[in-house]
Design a protein around this nucleic acid. Structure first.
Ligand code: ZN
Ligand code: ZN
Length: 717
DNA sequence: AGCACGCCGACT
DNA sequence: GTCGGCGTGCTC
């Protein structure tokens, strides 16, 4: 029997809401943050050491199989961030660790020693004469000619050869020097607001969250660069988070030009495991000064972290939608708090959460209202739709405006957040609607490849010829998608190039870049697209923006829909126009009198956003209160119902629970889905109450009959 | 999450 | 008669 408090406490890299104990190794206790391989169930798994603790009573603990790290792979502040992330989002600690680490480390690969460079040893010189392997030969030659080689710069094919050469003693490790930082000066003259912003941001010390509200084209990136420069020159490192992979290349270019190619790196899920691991390890050793990355980059170790930037902080992509439902933006704020560094949240259309924090005095805020280069804000106007015939969802006036714009030699951008040809196909004779067999949703007609697809599960089928109900061949579509818009426009403007920009049209890596390059040639053209058009790329020759389906955002069951609409309209508007050719934005709507649209006409974000925030406060919704959703799914609706009823009954005093309510998508991939809403006055109180509640839920017998998960601060429903 | 065990449908 | 479908339960 082991001593009471002498067991290793370990988090298995799996979504298990418990900690497991193993015998303390004979060599002594291990520090928290070291990975181990442990026997588990019938096999073995990788796990993270959390510390020492009491041995479980009545269980024969096993010995660990291997210690994978000689020192903790994350510093104490990041370990605390992980612990916070598990506690706040009520998620299994082992899965949180696994999500936070690069895949290679999660799978148990060793942390590479990036600091080491290699040169040829005496034995290697001798071996040079007789070695025959092609790879080995090439490697030794390279070592001889270059004198010194860093694995990170070595072509991938030669890395195994290097490992082999080290093993045989032909190559010898030496600590490579960290390249010196050489900043170039800003090629721009900062306008007065930018200078003021930079002055405030440079002066920020310690934990200090600052919301940078800069209209599109106000030069936020230049403010980031100039703010970071002195901090980097003083030896610091910086973390820049962006919502999407597609936004990294442009930002990476700007940063590399200013701070040097070898000082800056991207980190995102589009990279290979090996590439991510090398970048991660180099950042950890202080060899990289700036990391630009998406969500999971918030966990990259940076020993001299001096500042965090979250760009486009309003973007919902910062919230992970599967597994551990964390918000990278919110964890970035927590990280800044734990590391005691300033954090800048930048956006032209800040989230109501951040605006609320400004109102409460938790964040400072800086405005950039001036556009660089004297560009004008686009004028916004409504196009009321009153019983007029629509052609493929486009009104006569909008088509007319398109024609006029093209005739003047300018470009048009039409925004419609719906892929496919039509969001539904139905029988003209009996009204039968084609539904997904596994989901409670209509199938989307993709006319280009004559298929019906479900956008919620993987289901797809050939376009049917007849109605399965009555046999009629008269099948008609309802509603419009981007494909249909494209067709209508081609017919109406046969001589104008039309670019469809959505996930279906953009097959392949470079597709978007190609379209952007073509469109920037400034010939008259029409861009039709989804969400993708709202992010990143600027189209200077676009002088007309049409929002085709405005009303989708006005009357949605999701209480965040109006906020999204407001942000999307202004973000899309920001893609267009330039100094000598200001843009204009037309919103098609059946509800021109709607207060949100009326407020939008001013072209400013602050006023309508403040109004939406006031509505949320009045309705007791986030960010005025804290919300979590408990979701459950099972093949039998009765099980879901029974679990959620049982859960509601167990809610601790103070936790306001409503439901069960059917989810917005009642059935997905054959699973019936429903949810409970749990609210509390503040996030801290919510966290405390949820912890108690979930502990009780785990003991609930009905819990084993369903798949359940908790989403704290949910963004989509 | 894996993985083993166990109990019912359509195959050699 | 088996092979394998996934529903259920467990992992220090
Ligand atoms: Zn029919
Ligand atoms: Zn489906």
């Amino acid at each position: 029997m082991k001593h009471e408090t002498s067991c290793l406490q370990v988090a298995i890299f799996a979504p298990l809401r418990r900690i497991f104990s193993y015998a303390c190794p004979a060599s002594g206790p291990l520090p928290a943050g070291v990975r181990v391989r442990v026997p588990f169930a019938s096999g073995n798994r990788i796990a993270m050491v959390l510390g020492m603790g009491p041995c479980p009573p009545g269980v024969e603990v096993k010995d660990i199989q291997a210690v994978l790290d000689s020192t903790p792979i994350l510093d104490p502040a990041l370990q605390r961030l992980i612990a916070f992330g598990a506690a706040y989002y009520q998620h299994a600690i082992g899965d949180v660790w696994a999500t936070a680490l690069p895949a290679a480390l999660r799978k148990g690969q060793p942390l590479p020693d990036i600091a080491a460079s290699y040169h040829l040893s005496a034995a290697g010189c001798a071996a040079l004469q007789r070695v025959r392997g092609k790879r080995q030969r090439a490697l030794l030659d390279a070592l001889q000619t270059d004198g010194m080689l860093a694995p990170a710069t070595l072509e991938a094919g030669l890395r195994p050869a290097l490992r082999e050469a080290v093993r045989r003693g032909w190559a010898q490790a030496v600590a490579a020097p960290i390249p010196a930082l050489r900043c170039s000066n800003s090629p721009f003259h900062l306008h007065q607001e930018q200078q003021a912003a930079v002055a405030v941001l440079r002066a920020a010390q310690g934990f200090s969250p600052i919301l940078l509200q800069g209209v599109t084209g106000s030069g936020k990136t230049e403010v980031y660069l100039e703010t970071l420069r002195p901090r980097l020159e003083a030896g610091g490192q910086a973390l820049v988070l962006v919502p999407e992979i597609s936004l990294t290349p442009q930002l990476l270019d700007r940063f590399a030009q200013r701070f040097g190619e070898e000082q800056v790196a991207a980190l995102h899920s589009g990279q290979s495991d090996g590439e991510r691991l090398r970048t991660w390890a180099a950042a950890r050793e202080g060899r990289l000064r700036v990391i630009i990355g998406t969500r999971s980059a918030v966990f990259v170790p940076l020993p001299r972290l001096a500042m965090i930037v979250v760009d486009e902080e309003h973007d919902p992509s910062f919230k992970q939608q599967t597994g551990w439902h964390y918000s990278a933006r919110d964890l970035a704020i927590q990280r800044a708090r734990l590391e005691g560094c300033p954090i800048v949240l930048g956006s032209a259309t800040p989230s109501l959460e951040s605006l609320h924090n400004v109102d409460l005095g938790r964040y400072r805020t800086i405005h950039l209202r001036q556009r660089a280069g004297g560009a004008q804000a686009p004028a916004i106007a409504l196009l009321p739709l009153r019983r007029q015939g629509l052609q493929g969802g486009l009104s006569g006036p909008l088509l007319g405006a398109c024609a006029a714009t093209l005739a003047a030699g300018n470009q048009v951008l039409l925004f419609l957040n719906r892929r496919g040809y039509a969001p539904a196909l139905l029988c003209h004779d009996c009204g039968h609607v084609f539904h997904c067999p596994r989901c409670a949703a209509a199938l989307i007609w993709h006319r280009r490849d004559a298929r019906l697809r479900c956008h919620h599960c993987g289901h797809e089928e050939r376009l049917p010829r007849n109605c399965p109900q009555c046999g009629s061949a008269a099948l008609i579509s309802a509603g419009q998608g981007t494909e249909q818009l494209e067709d209508v426009l081609r017919e109406r403007f046969p001589d104008t190039p039309i670019w469809r920009v959505d996930r279906d049209a953009l097959r392949g890596r470079e597709a978007l870049e190609n379209v952007v390059r073509e469109v920037r040639r400034d010939e008259p053209a029409i861009l039709v697209g989804t969400q993708i058009l709202a992010k990143g790329h600027h189209f200077p020759a676009v002088t007309l923006v049409g929002i085709v389906n405005t009303d989708q955002g006005l009357f949605s069951a999701d209480f965040r829909a109006p906020e999204r609409l407001l942000q999307t309209v202004l973000q899309v508007a920001g893609r267009a126009g330039r100094a000598e050719r200001p843009g204009r934005v037309l919103l098609q709507t059946h509800h021109p009198e709607h207060p949100l649209l009326q407020a939008l006409l001013q072209g400013d974000y602050s006023a309508p956003a403040a109004a939406l925030l006031a509505e949320r406060v009045a309705a007791g919704l986030p960010p005025a209160t804290a919300l979590a959703v408990l979701r459950a799914e099972a093949h039998q609706r009765s099980r879901v119902e029974a679990f959620l009823q049982g859960a509601a009954a167990l809610a601790p005093a103070g936790l306001e629970v409503s439901g069960p309510l059917p989810s917005l998508l009642e059935r997905r991939a054959g699973f019936e889905r429903a949810e409970l809403w749990a609210q509390a006055g503040t996030r801290a109180v919510l966290q405390r109450l949820l912890s108690a509640w979930l502990q009780a839920l785990e003991a609930l017998p009905q819990a084993r009959q369903v798949r359940w998960q908790i989403d704290v601060d949910p963004l989509s429903f």
